[in-house]
């Protein structure tokens, strides 16, 4: 095969160089946005109304939670029952007078200590009675009511009637 002379390659080289130059020119003239660049601004894509609605909802939930938490301490009834009220911690009839019930096993003592500390923590804080409006009863009216109950045998009639209702049911 006969080798092509260098001068015969010249037009081909010229074309390649022209292509290269054109390509570089084109790349240089392209705007920078073609370069991959990530914008970390997710909120800009959200609609303002949606953002406002979400914020309001969160504020509403926080208000509701706070108010309900605040109301819990006044609901004393739910915390009044302490472990000391459980039959387990009440004095046993067989116990000697003055002698405290002490568990014999180590495990029992641990449980007793744990329950004792727990009982202390669930004890409700004392409430100042002066903060409340107290409804006073009349001692004479109360006495008169009790006298009427005994005189008219109201309690016996009441229990008898209830027992009849119960049997009818």
């Amino acid at each position: 095969m006969k080798e092509i002379e260098e001068r015969q390659w010249a037009p081909v080289h010229g074309l390649i160089e022209a292509e290269k130059t054109a390509a570089w020119d084109e790349m240089g003239s392209r705007p920078l946005r073609t370069v991959p660049r990530v914008e970390h601004r997710p909120l800009r894509r959200l609609r303002p109304a949606f953002v406002a609605a979400s914020l309001l909802a969160v504020i509403g939930i926080i208000i509701a939670l706070k108010l309900s938490h605040r109301s819990q301490p006044t609901d004393i009834g739910s915390t009044l029952l302490t472990l000391a009220d459980l039959p387990l911690f009440q004095a046993q009839p067989a116990a000697k007078p003055g002698a405290a019930m002490v568990p014999e096993s180590e495990l029992g003592r641990q449980w007793a200590r744990m329950f004792a500390s727990l009982a202390e923590t669930v004890e409700p804080p004392p409430v100042d009675g002066s903060q409340h409006e107290v409804e006073r009863g009349d001692r004479l009216e109360t006495r008169e009511n009790i006298r009427r109950i005994i005189r008219d045998n109201l309690l016996e009639r009441f229990i008898t009637r209830l027992s009849q209702i119960n049997q009818e049911v």
Partner: peptide, 30 residues
């Protein structure tokens, strides 16, 4: 939604307060 949450919380707190009136012993017996 906010209004409903607020109303609910208010009702809860009112219910707790209304769960018991402070009286004296005679009134309770009465």
């Amino acid at each position: 939604l906010v209004w409903t949450c607020a109303i609910r919380a208010e009702t809860e707190s009112e219910g707790t307060v209304a769960s018991g009136k402070v009286k004296d012993g005679y009134a309770l017996l009465n």
